[in-house]
Amino acid sequence: MHGSLRGTRLAAALASVLMLFVTVAACGSSGSPRAGSGKTTAASKAFPVTIAHKYGSTTVEARPQRIVTVGLTDQDAVLALGEVPVGTTEWLGGYKGAIGPWATGRLGGAKAPTVLKDTGTGPQTEKIAALRPDLILAVYGGLTKSQYETLSKFAPVVAQPKEYNDFGVPWQQQTEIIGKALGQEAKAKSLVDGVEKDFKAATEKNPAFARSTGVVATPYEGIFVFGSQDPRSRVLTDLGFTLPADLDKVIGDEFGANISKERTDLLDTDAIVWIASDPVKDEAKLHKDALYGDLKVAKQNREVYLKESSDYGNAVSFVTVLSLPYMLERLVPQLAAAVDGDPATEVAAPAA
C-alpha cells in the first residue's frame, strides 16, 4: 500500500518536472547568455563527441549553450575553458555563484550562475530543469544511476568516470573530460600542462618531498583520513610525497574514512595536513590525546593546520585546474617547513 502510494507520487512529481521543462523550453532562450555565447569557433566543429562514464556513455551533439554543473567542482574547469555555466552546485564557502576567489576573474562581465544545492537527497531536479540546460556535468560527483537517468531526461549528462571512486576523479582527467564535452580538448590539455609545470617546479625546488611520507586528515568525529583516490591526497603524491602503506587497506573503497585509535600510526608521517574547523583548538585537543601527541609528527612540529572555512582551506579541498595554483603558492612553503628536518622550524600560516 505505502509502496504503491510512493510510486504514484514519484510518477506525478516526475511528470510535473517534465512538464515544467517542456513549458519553460517552449518559451525560448531568453535571459542572460553565457560568456562567449557569440563565439563560432573551431570548438563548434568538434561535435558530436561521445564521453564514457560510470553509467555508459553520453553523446553531446552540438556545442553547449547552457551548462549546469552538478559535480561539486566542475564549474572551475568550465570557467577555465572560457565558458560560464548557468547553474552550479553549492559545496564549500558559500561563494556567490559557487565561484571561489581563485576563479572569479574568469566570470568577466557575465552574470554569476544560479546556485543549486544538494540537500542530501540528490540534485534539485526541478530547479535544474528550469534552467533549460543543454549539458549537465557531474564529473566530480557521485550520481546514482537513478539520478543520472532522471537528469538525462532534460539534457545530456556526463557522469563521474567509472575508473575512480565517486568523488575521486583526478583534476587532470576532470579538466580533460569537461574539455572534450565542450569541444575544447586541446585547450583543456594545455591548461593541465600549465598546472603540472607548477607541480614540477615545486618538486624540483623541494627534493625533500620525494623522500617524505605524508597524509591529509581532519578531526571530524574523531580522526578522518583521506585515501589515495581523494584529490587532496593526490596533491601530496603529485608533489612527490608517499602515502602510508596501509592507508587504502584501512579505508577501503572510499575517498576517506574515520580510523580507529589502534590505527593512529597511519598519522605518523613526515608531514600531515590537518583540515580543521578551528586550527588552534583542534591542535590543542589532538596533542592532549596521548596516542597522537606522542607521535613524532606531533612532537617534531611537522603539522600543517588549515582552517577549512577559509579561502585557502576551501582551495585545498577543491583541487581544480583553477584552485591549484592559488593553493600551491600557500601550501608548498608550509610543507617545506614541515620536512626541513629541524623541529624548531615554525610551519607558519600564509600571510593571505
Rank of each mutant, 00 (worst) to 15 (best):
L20A: 07
S32K: 04
V68E: 12
L92Q: 05
V297N: 04
P156M: 02
D238E: 12
E126D: 15
T203S: 13
E149G: 08
A80S: 08
S323P: 13
D270Y: 05
P64L: 03
L322E: 15
G252A: 01
E204P: 06
T58H: 07
A271T: 05
V60I: 13
L247N: 03
G256T: 01
V347A: 01
A337K: 04
V215M: 01
P123K: 02
K285Q: 10
P123T: 06
T73V: 02
S29F: 00
P219D: 10
P133F: 11
G71T: 01
G179V: 11
N258H: 10
T144Y: 14
G7H: 04
A186E: 10
T8H: 08
G341D: 14
L92I: 03
A52Q: 12
A52P: 10
R9M: 01
V332A: 12
Q124A: 15
G82S: 04
K54F: 00
K205D: 15
V225Q: 07
L18G: 15
P161S: 01
A344L: 04
A208V: 02
R330P: 15
K205I: 06
A130V: 03
R132S: 06
Y220M: 10
F241K: 03
M19Q: 14
L331T: 13
L131F: 15
A62Q: 15
F167T: 09
D193W: 02
